[in-house]
Design a protein around this nucleic acid. Structure first.
Lengths: 105, 105
DNA sequence: AAACTATATATATATATTTTCATATACTAT
DNA sequence: ATAGTATATGAAAATATATATATATAGTTT
């Protein structure tokens, strides 16, 4: 196997990881919300109507896999999608499947 | 919760399921291959260079979750992506991340 | 019907994920 | 420094997933 093959296989694995980590209802909703604008944790669990610990744990998972970043702003911690490829992916997914649109309806 | 909300939440869950099931390197490669054209099982495992049982098991998972269909054609069984939304999704994903392109390089 | 090819399923084991609840840490305001 | 608010982490139990190997089924050809 050439080096190019090794690299492209690694990329494929990484993309699979991204899909997998977003393949959870709570995490998908977090990603959709953050694709719109960055939010602090409180806003997110307020929006999702879920216990704080649940949201924090999912945020940690998303952050560990590299699809989210966090920035402390005083007392709050804001989360955002920093990678433009992932942001595009979520945006396209949302458009193609009309997820946010349907949730709002 | 209104009926519309219930339905859109169900759809969101379904989309999360689709992402999750595709969030595995082997299954992602199967989907990419089948987005190009439908294939029988032998072609797939030949292409992926994996044991037959491994491929069959992943195909079953994909079929159970409704992202693939199969059709017997004589001795062979062909798999295909029947849902156009999912086909679009895979195609877009591939384009945006240049997966197939990189794998071919 | 026997031999062959193609595909599917079963089972066991290992590993990972989800969920819940309790607790800990980090800042802010007084 | 203390109280209050915001967020993160830990641990345990339940559940799901992955992987390997063996075996079974379905169709084809002779």
């Amino acid at each position: 196997m050439t080096m190019a093959e090794v690299n492209s296989k690694r990329e494929l694995n990484e993309i699979a990881e991204v899909l997998k980590v977003m393949g959870h209802p709570v995490r998908l909703r977090i990603m959709l919300k953050l694709a719109e604008r960055c939010c602090c944790v409180g806003e997110i669990w307020d929006h999702l109507q879920l216990p704080q610990a649940v949201v924090s744990q999912h945020l940690k998972i998303l952050k560990d896999r590299g699809v989210l970043e966090s920035r402390r702003e005083g007392a709050r911690v804001c989360y955002l999608i920093s990678d433009s490829m992932i942001l595009d992916l979520v945006t396209t997914l949302d458009k193609q499947c009309c997820i946010t649109e349907k949730l709002a309806a």
